[in-house]
Design a protein around this nucleic acid. Sequence first.
DNA 1: ACGTGCTTGTGAAACTACGCACAAAGTGGG
DNA 2: CCCACTTTGTGCGTAGTTTCACAAGCACGT
Lengths: 232, 232
Amino acid sequence: MISRPPRPRERGIPEATVARLPVYLRALQALEDRGTLTVSSEALASAAGVNSAKLRKDLSHLGSYGTRGVGYEVEYLVYQISRELGLTQDWSVAIVGIGNLGRALANYGGFGTRGFRIASLLDADSGVVGQSVAGLRVGHIDSLEEAVRNNGVSIGVIATPAASAQHVANRFVEVGVASILNFAPVVLDVPDGVDVRKVDLSIELQILAFHAQRRADGDGRAPADRTGLELT
Amino acid sequence: MISRPPRPRERGIPEATVARLPVYLRALQALEDRGTLTVSSEALASAAGVNSAKLRKDLSHLGSYGTRGVGYEVEYLVYQISRELGLTQDWSVAIVGIGNLGRALANYGGFGTRGFRIASLLDADSGVVGQSVAGLRVGHIDSLEEAVRNNGVSIGVIATPAASAQHVANRFVEVGVASILNFAPVVLDVPDGVDVRKVDLSIELQILAFHAQRRADGDGRAPADRTGLELT
DNA sequence: ACGTGCTTGTGAAACTACGCACAAAGTGGG
DNA sequence: CCCACTTTGTGCGTAGTTTCACAAGCACGT
């Protein structure tokens, strides 16, 4: 029997929920691989490292996909979350900056779930252009516009040094790439409507250091160096 | 003249603020390099990509380091934020998993600000052990405990495949490393008091895809594939 | 010495997120 | 057919975060 689905989600899933859906999805896929057919919110929440009430509320934003007394059907939920995240279509990705990091990204085969296809690798260094990385020939950055248009790229990844990142972002925006993942340690300035996400190693380390210091301060076994005195 | 600083911060800086301090710090360091002496909340906020009221409130948690009518003294603020984040001490970092990503991390020289020292690189693959990466000899994972103890490592970075990540985390925790930065696509299970931060490429891509789909749905120029019909 | 103009620091309001606890709803056994 | 049991979906109180808007404070010119 075929029917129109009951248009579950109204509008606007909370941002915090969106950020967790990929985690749930991964946990569900692990269960699926193990042959599990249904899972309770309790079990899934524990696999995803969250509270079960939060998990249920998150899922409730997508619609009512569970069965009371039983739980959630794994396969069905995988499909619903994938669809919500837009993974039922294919997204073409271009990576700019094929240094150590760019190479790591290009070779990161799985890309978690499928749904993403690395369509183009670009670099400014003529020593790198022409090399084969992860089965693709690295193109010159000058051909960015061409590469984006020919491959229908809609997601741009910036793995260049900080100094070039804004320039690359401008060019992405210019050719209509409205989703950018930025690994360079700079704040990108982009027009409204362009979505930038930032991944920044040194920020993460600094946050860890903050908490580590907190812990040490309380401990009485502080590592070093702070005097409590200073010049004014 | 020397005096005790006015113990500015009470206790507990909001987590959201902590996450932004490194961004402010970077913007300030850029200003410092350019020779700027003072900066207004408006200017700094714009460099950091946030609202100026938020910036002022964030900084107010560290104490009252601005001058009304003038702004903030760049050098002094750099010092205060660095101190708050614990960057006035040196943190030793061990990286486990010297694949593409581990190599990228090891070679990411700057580590933003100094304050972090890569003390040890470890891998399980005997083809990798013994290689020299970023000026360090890669050690065997079996010597993790030794490496941590000898180098005073307090931050562990996991860049292994997903399957090994939990095991490595356990060993880190076991030898007293309470700050972990995890690049493997798994949810780590650790005891209370251990701080784990996760960096996950595919999650970021999925979040971008979600928003991209949203944008497309509204546009009327949706890319592909969704039928609106399904089996029940 | 005092007023003018600028910028900080912060109370208060609005919004967002979290988690408890429970009614509603489905399953399976007798 | 009904009852006992399980698990979802959610109303509601609480906590955390963002933003506005303005009083307080400081510098500088006169």
